[in-house]
Amino acid sequence: MFEARLVQGNLLKKVVDAVKDLVTDANFDCSSSGFTLQAMDNSHVSLVSLSLRSDGFEHFRCDRNMSMGMSLGNLAKILKCAGNDDIVTMKAADDGDTVTFMFESPKEDRVSDFELKLMDIDSEHLGIPDTDYAATVTLPAAEYQRICRDLSSIGDTVVISATKDGVKFSSSGDVGTANITVRQNTTADKKEEQVSIDLKEPVALTFALRYLNSFAKATPLASHVSLSMARDLPVMVDYQISDMGHLRFYLAPKIED
């Protein structure tokens, strides 16, 4: 039996909204340590990795490891029916073919439940090694979203280069070129405006903006996002979900033909 109660139910809604355009169907894996998802987008260019630790739930019970295949579009439709402040409880039997979502209003005057049909999804699980990144920039999530959006009107790809002077995002296309540089700013008045750069060695990589833009759909989940880069390796775009875990996206760099 699997049962998980999440007081901040809208967090689940935000997670699903962040990945549903990238991944159509995915397996959610439940174990005593938590609720996780790992999935590649349809074209196998990027990887999504979600981890919600069991201790972040008000109640969490998972008697045996299980994998629940869901259509993220259908899951999003169901979660849309939850009120913003509702408590969400997920329930599934060990051998069932459905998962139930129960929504409770904070005043306890409205309770609803929605059953979602599970699906069999073939998916290979990838091992993501701990990487010694050459550079990590942590910037406001809204700033990352803006950079990706602004550069998308100029070109299809972005070169992200991290040097001691800052992290530069460059794009070019028919319109012309654009460069946006963010510099370390750990003394900003507001904590949510701070930018920090951890640079071990300079690194520059090229990425498809379409995917970086799609990752920015996770903006409502966290105040900040970290981009970690190492030569010839996928960038890790990491949104920390407070007290619970993370939603990470990995995107393979573009390389010369």
Binding site: M40, H44, V45, S46, L47, E124, H125, L126, G127, I128, P129, T157, T206, A208, L233, P234, Y250, L251, A252, P253, K254, I255, E256, D257
Partner: peptide
Amino acid sequence: MKQRDISSFFGKA
């Protein structure tokens, strides 16, 4: 420019 499959960077778990 070429785009490698993301799975080619990570081993099977």
